[in-house]
Nucleic acid binder design. Structure first.
Lengths: 300, 300
DNA sequence: GTGAAAGCGCTAACAT
DNA sequence: ATGTTAGCGCTTTCAC
């Protein structure tokens, strides 16, 4: 401790998360932990529990506690939600080495390690199309983060490239409440048009499970049918989604395995390199990690 | 920082978890965070990623970094697994205020905040029995932690009190691998006896989902039938389990909502009180928090 | 090669 | 009230 004071180094890095209770945060944290333990640095963790003012407060406290560097998963505000990123600006401009994880802030220059969301969304949508979908729809939260923007972009690129319905159906949810009837309302509205989607790309794993449940409820036998490559009829729309959850049973979906643990590992390594001064990079440098696509549609 | 040195206080508490990737750990962490943010103390977090030697190393590092107090969720070794708890002993005996969460170490005197596992297991088992189960079985991991011991005890108390099969069927899994065929082997073995359970108490949420899936696979129509209070036939064994997961759809089970967030909050408050010297307690003091039982069997 | 001294930045105690 | 000083414990430097 006195050691830290004298040497001007604390061997501690700060970690700021919007919310630990999201499952994927833990995997990022696990990755960070691995490298941190290996390199003998400690972690000072603060989460913002879905409140952007807590993020600001946490950032300021951490800077006070003199950390050597900062890992940040920025808060995800709903589009239109007031969000004050001055604390982040302050932190970034204080000159402390920092790396963003999973998403970055377009206006603020930082290093970042993120997933290949656009590519994965495009490839996954192409898989839906290859499986016979002609009216794929996009479902996700309406959050202002780069990650989700990229996924929508990838989805749109794929549907356009395939010459499908333009604009494709899309639903951007404006609240986080899992009990909200918003998805059901959308589905019944779609059902009314007679142009019900035959495939869905869902931005988040939990939403996909809810969607699957609602679809079953709506029509146990399977609403739209889709001609598979082999010519046989399959029942119900296909679901593809970002994320995987319980490894305990098959989901019947196409899932994008997000490399969260690797994001955490890489970001920490990059941060430690920045701290050690091994890498001197003035400019924002964004590292993009590929994602794996798991097709589980045969097992349901 | 110099402030900390001079005042002999760091306003930082150490938190040691066996594994952040378990979903319930985040809820404990969220509770800790809430109180910590409120009281202006920072968290130094270390996880052991399911490796008991990492736990030891983390504990030693944390003690070095001079934290004001320690929150610990002890590592959960399989019964029979070599587990060296000397680092914990060292930490506890160093005199630093510390509080265990969710489980405690019988041999080592510490304060702890835990759930009412035995009561919840008993009440839940009584619910199974009240719903018509005559041959309930227990399924869980064979871990040497107080939490799981209590659950088994509660289960056994309830079955004995009701005068049911003695000893009740029970399966204690000896590995964590979700793909392991162990549960399926147990089920087919049970099916062979002709005395298939008509209800299950499962110690962990993920296991319950796997069990439900295996039961459906084994017999889509429902294997054992059970007479409900109302006299109508229900298909398939009932499942009760500790934990709840996705709020996105009904599970059809009886779930025990574990008050993890509250455990975190209470433990942190207790720790801060100990640090402030408001409470001087030489002896181990264990605080037990009640759990809520959610019956979702009507919705599947 | 070994030992002594200055100082990291702040705060509590003391002196003015 | 306001200002000054000693010292938290370690490390680096400088002197021997």
């Amino acid at each position: 401790m006195a050691r830290s004071m004298r040497r001007g180094k604390t061997d501690t890095i700060g970690v700021v998360f919007p919310d630990v209770s999201e499952a994927f945060m833990n995997r990022i944290l696990a990755g960070i932990e691995t490298v941190a333990l290996e390199q003998g640095v400690s972690l000072m963790i603060a989460t913002s529990t879905l409140d952007s003012s807590a993020e600001a407060r946490n950032l300021d406290t951490l800077m006070d506690r003199s950390i050597d560097g900062l890992l940040l998963v920025p808060y995800a505000p709903f589009r239109g939600e007031a969000y004050d990123n001055r604390a982040i600006r302050r932190a970034m401009e204080s000159g402390i080495p920092s790396v963003c994880i999973d998403r970055y802030l377009p206006g603020i220059s930082t290093h970042a390690v993120i997933g290949a969301d656009r590519d994965a969304a495009r490839l996954t949508t192409e898989k839906l199309i290859a499986a016979g979908c002609r009216r794929p729809a996009y479902l996700g939260f309406d959050l202002a983060i780069t990650t989700l923007d990229e996924r929508r972009r990838g989805f749109n690129n794929a549907t356009k490239a395939a010459g499908l319905t333009d604009p494709s159906e899309e639903k951007l949810l404006t609240e986080r409440n899992p009990d909200s009837p918003d998805i059901m309302e959308w589905l019944t509205e779609l059902a009314g048009t007679g142009r019900f989607p035959d495939g869905f790309l869902v931005s988040t794993d939990g939403l996909a499970l809810k969607l699957r449940w609602l679809l079953e409820k709506l029509s146990p036998a399977g609403r739209a049918s889709r001609r598979t490559g082999a010519g046989r009829e399959r029942s119900g729309p296909l679901i593809a989604r970002f994320g995987e959850d319980s490894p305990y049973f098959p989901t019947g979906m196409i899932s994008v395995r997000q490399p969260h643990e690797e994001l955490g590992r890489r970001a920490t390594k990059k941060l430690l390199a920045l701290i050690a001064g091994e890498v001197i990079l003035q400019n924002q440098q964004i590292e993009i990690i590929d994602m794996e696509i798991i097709d589980d549609t045969q097992h349901h």
